[in-house]
Structures are given as structure tokens and as C-alpha cells.
């Protein structure tokens, strides 16, 4: 793996909320074009790690962050937070469609940057909705409210909305936790296509899912990075006892 290009470098990252540690000295690389899955029980700091990477963590109250995160070798704090958030998109655990039409939802982020021609908008809509495997299901009702979509459709809409901003990296925070198996499969299908052009960090509670889709997998526990390795190796011959206990269902 050493010859691969590092897209994200997390160096000695510690985060605490109002004095309570959420992450302690986490160092981790994410390589360009891989799917890094992150597993770990609740409260192990997975979401905190993701939101630190796209600088949405700092919006929260009473948070203190130390350490460095590099994106393409450059400290993310040297760029505007809005730029980092556009380059590093995030898909949340629960789908959060805003109460507007499907079209307006998808175009929300890109419209903040610049004014688009109608034809440009249509292109972006079709491209991102296709990439999110949603186009066929919604192409005839783009102007209807996004709230009326099913949970699985909403989540794929949120993926399309994130894609529309053309991020280089996409962070997924347990995007399938509220979805049925069929919807989950569709999201995973979309993921396989997305990884051709994006770097992906995928947090999941579901170890089987992590094993299915990951290039490499990281295991977080109580705010510490226990180990990170090629997915196949981590799930067959983990080097730490804690990892083995977790993936074999001893706890968590």
C-alpha cells in the first residue's frame, strides 16, 4: 500500500466535548480511490472522526480539537471550511431530505456556489441521480416533494445531493442503519460505482457490511484506533485481541 497516494492523512487527532474525550490520538491514512470502512461499537468516536475530516465538527458547541488533518497533503485548516466541506461530502445516518422538491434538494449545494442554466441543472440532476441509482424511480416526478420518497429513496437522494457538489471524498456515516436489506443493497451498488471516481470513508455498525464493501477496515474503540488493515486480513487474522472479540461478536 505504500506506493498508493494518500488522499487524507489524520495525524494525532484528539477531540473532546466539554472536557469529555471523544477521540484520543488517532492517526490514520486514507488512500486515493479506496473504500475505508470504519467499524466500532456506539460511542467509539466514528462520527466524530468523520465530521472532523470535513470540518463540520467545529460548528458544534464546546468542542476542542487538536492534531492535524491533511487533504492532498495540505492542512485542512488552511482552507476555508466551506471549501473543505464541498471537497469532502458527507452522507448522514438518517436521510435528511429538506422539505422541497427532489430537484431543489439535489441542486441545493451547487446552487449556493453559482447560478446554473436550466440545461446545466438538468444534466447534473440526471447524472447524480443515476449515480445514486435513483434516476429510474424518480425521473417522472422531479418536481414533487422529496419528503414523499421512501426511506431508501431518500437516502439515495441524499447521496445524489452530496454528489452534485462534486466532492473528491465522500464520508458515509452509517447510511444504511435505517434501511431494509433491499435498499441497503442498492446503496452498496451505488457505492461500487462511486469508488471509481471518489475516495470513500464508510462508517458502519454492521461488520458484515464492512467486510463486503471495504478495501481496508479500521476498528475504533472508545475513541482509540485499535487497528487498521486490509479488510480481508482484519476480518480473518486480526492482529489485536479486541478486534477479534468485536468481529466475532464477543461484545458490541
Amino acid at each position: 500500500m505504500d506506493n498508493m497516494e494518500k488522499k487524507i492523512v489524520v495525524e494525532d487527532l484528539s477531540v473532546s466535548f466539554d472536557g469529555t474525550h471523544a477521540l484520543s490520538n488517532v492517526s490514520l491514512d486514507v488512500f486515493k480511490g479506496e473504500i475505508l470502512t470504519i467499524i466500532g461499537p456506539a460511542n467509539s468516536g466514528k462520527t466524530t472522526l468523520l465530521s472532523a475530516i470535513n470540518r463540520t465538527l467545529e460548528i458544534k458547541d464546546m468542542v476542542s480539537i487538536t492534531g492535524r488533518i491533511l487533504l492532498d497533503g495540505k492542512d485542512i485548516n488552511e482552507s476555508e471550511p466551506e471549501e473543505i466541506r464541498r471537497r469532502v461530502g458527507m452522507v448522514y445516518a438518517l436521510p435528511i431530505p429538506l422539505p422541497m422538491s427532489i430537484r431543489d434538494n439535489v441542486l441545493l449545494g451547487i446552487r449556493l456556489q453559482r447560478r446554473l442554466k436550466r440545461s446545466e441543472e438538468d444534466d447534473i440532476l440526471e447524472k447524480t441521480l443515476r449515480a445514486a441509482f435513483l434516476w429510474e424511480e424518480v425521473k417522472d416526478r422531479l418536481n414533487t416533494s422529496a419528503i414523499q420518497l421512501s426511506g431508501g429513496q431518500q437516502q439515495r437522494l441524499c447521496i445524489a445531493r452530496t454528489l452534485a457538489v462534486k466532492p473528491e471524498v465522500i464520508l458515509f456515516d452509517e447510511p444504511c442503519s435505517g434501511l431494509d436489506p433491499i435498499s441497503t443493497m442498492k446503496v452498496e451498488e451505488a457505492l461500487k460505482e462511486l469508488v471509481r471516481e471518489h475516495t470513500i470513508v464508510f462508517v458502519t455498525n454492521n461488520t458484515k457490511q464492512a467486510a463486503r464493501i471495504g478495501t481496508r477496515t479500521a476498528f475504533l474503540l472508545m475513541g482509540r484506533l485499535v487497528e487498521v488493515d486490509a479488510t480481508e486480513k482484519l476480518f480473518t487474522v486480526p492482529s489485536c485481541k479486541e478486534t477479534e472479540d468485536y468481529i466475532t461478536g464477543q461484545f458490541g
Binding site: N54, T56, I59, E82, E83, R85, R86, G89, M90, Y92, L94, I96, L98, L108, G109, R111, L112, Q113, C158, R161, T162, V165
Partner: peptide, 22 residues
């Protein structure tokens, strides 16, 4: 809902864009 603000911010909206658009 707070989540609306988070979504807008995570798409690169500034605070004012978030307030005015979402």
C-alpha cells in the same frame, strides 16, 4: 430541525446561506 442546518453546512453553505436557503 438542527439536521437541516447540518445538511446545508455539510454541502458547503456558509452560515448565512444556511439561514437564508434552508
Amino acid at each position: 430541525p438542527i439536521s437541516y442546518r447540518e445538511v446545508a453546512r455539510s454541502l458547503g453553505a456558509t452560515r448565512w446561506q444556511t439561514v437564508s436557503k434552508a
